[in-house]
């Protein structure tokens, strides 16, 4: 799933490890989410959104919206 996690992290000058520690997950998890290889569960998506003070849809692009945009 496409997302703005890398951008949001870079704005705060956090490394992947910093973000992983704040979310209490592994650095591999952060990397996999950022690169779109892994879609987080809803609870983890909420934790990410709450950490950045944003709504989930401001971080993660809805796959349906993304595909309709591509058409």
């Amino acid at each position: 799933m496409e997302n703005r996690l890398k951008l949001l992290r870079a704005e705060r000058a956090w490394s992947q490890q910093d973000l992983a520690e704040k979310l209490e997950v592994s650095r591999q998890s952060v990397n996999a989410i950022e690169t779109g290889k892994y879609d987080p569960s809803l609870p983890l998506a909420f934790r990410i959104a709450e950490l950045f003070g944003l709504a989930i849809e401001e971080i993660f692009v809805s796959p349906a919206r993304h595909s309709s945009r591509a058409i």
Binding site: V25, S26, Q28, S29
Partner: peptide
């Protein structure tokens, strides 16, 4: 089995 139960990181569990 315990490893799967105790891994609290969902990506690593996957």
């Amino acid at each position: 089995g315990r490893l799967l139960m105790e891994l609290d990181d969902e990506y690593l569990r996957l």
